[in-house]
């Protein structure tokens, strides 16, 4: 004790006390704070961002810029959100193969894990819509008829009555929605990719989006029952007319030729 009190006026005493106090608070924090989980998340997140950044630098930066700021060849990705990345890369549209009127859907070249990493990186550039949870886009239990009405009001003018797709100006087009993952339909409505307008929750509520997905699931998927037989692409009167001419009238003429070729032979008298 004596020793301690003797040195308490030592010029370095204050520094020693400060060090002890710092060590104590630090130690106490380390002991009591819910540090474990938070720290792990942080690492995973930053790891994902880091990994995403690397993938980004290889696959995306040449058009979107090294920091996602955009260039003359590609738009800025600041604020597009994880949902946009999940849609564009998850449907194979990105990375783009070549410039053109529109970037088509094609083979997906990244794994879902890589897509998540890219999404994490792009989401870190600025706040935007995040990837929806499965319960948000699961069509089970939604109102199909309501979805149909919403689809005809908001979507059919480009995507056709049942989402078979249609033409836009200058070589652009609204793609077919056949067999598109419900998640991607949800994300497309949320983010408005390429020529599509976006339908944020203020325009089409989460419930509405679910209804639309349920409608498409009912009328334009592998399980859709065609009550009238083969639907000829569901494209309307053009394909029907072509079919009537080629196969309908074609069959009629073939039959007519067959009938005419079978002439009654004149009796030999």
């Amino acid at each position: 004790m004596k020793k301690l009190s003797a040195r308490r006026r030592h010029p370095l005493a204050a520094i020693v006390v400060l060090l002890i106090a710092l060590a104590a608070t630090g130690g106490l924090y380390a002991v009591f704070a819910p540090a474990d989980k938070a720290q792990a998340d942080e690492t995973a997140q930053s790891l994902a961002i880091d990994e995403g950044k690397k993938l980004y630098a290889v696959g995306c930066a040449s058009c979107h810029g090294t920091g996602g700021q955009g260039t003359s060849d590609g738009p800025s990705l600041v604020g597009v959100g994880a949902a946009a990345v999940d849609f564009q890369v998850g449907t194979g549209r990105m990375p783009a193969q070549q410039p053109g009127a529109q970037v088509p859907r094609k083979k997906v070249i990244y794994t879902q894990a890589e897509i998540d990493q890219l999404a994490a990186y792009v989401a870190s550039l600025g706040a935007g819509p995040s990837v929806p949870d499965e319960e948000q886009y699961d069509p089970a239990g939604a109102d199909i008829a309501e979805g149909g009405e919403l689809f005809r009001t908001n979507c059919a003018q480009c995507h056709n009555f049942t989402g078979k797709g249609g033409a836009l100006s200058e070589g652009k087009y609204a793609p077919t929605l056949e067999d598109v993952d419900p998640k991607h339909i949800y994300e497309a409505m949320q983010t408005g990719p390429q020529n599509m307008p976006s339908f944020p929750d203020t325009t089409l509520s989460e419930e509405n989006k679910k209804d639309i997905i349920a409608y498409l699931d009912a009328v334009n998927s592998d399980d859709t029952v065609e009550p009238g037989g083969n639907a000829l692409g569901g494209l309307g009167p053009v394909s029907e007319g072509l079919f009537a001419w080629v196969f309908g009238l074609g069959a009629m003429i073939a039959v007519a030729v067959w009938v005419a070729a079978r002439t009654a032979k004149a009796k030999k008298s």
């Binding site: 059919a156 003018q157 009555f161 078979k164 037989g229 007319g241």
Partner: peptide, 28 residues
């Protein structure tokens, strides 16, 4: 019997505020 024509169930009822792409008349 084999091929659908004019699947009105897929087209929906007419409403003046709705329209679809690919709206064509019959061929004639």
């Amino acid at each position: 019997g084999l091929f659908t024509i004019n699947p009105i169930w897929a087209l929906g009822p007419y409403r003046a505020d709705q329209v679809s792409t690919g709206a064509q008349p019959d061929w004639y």
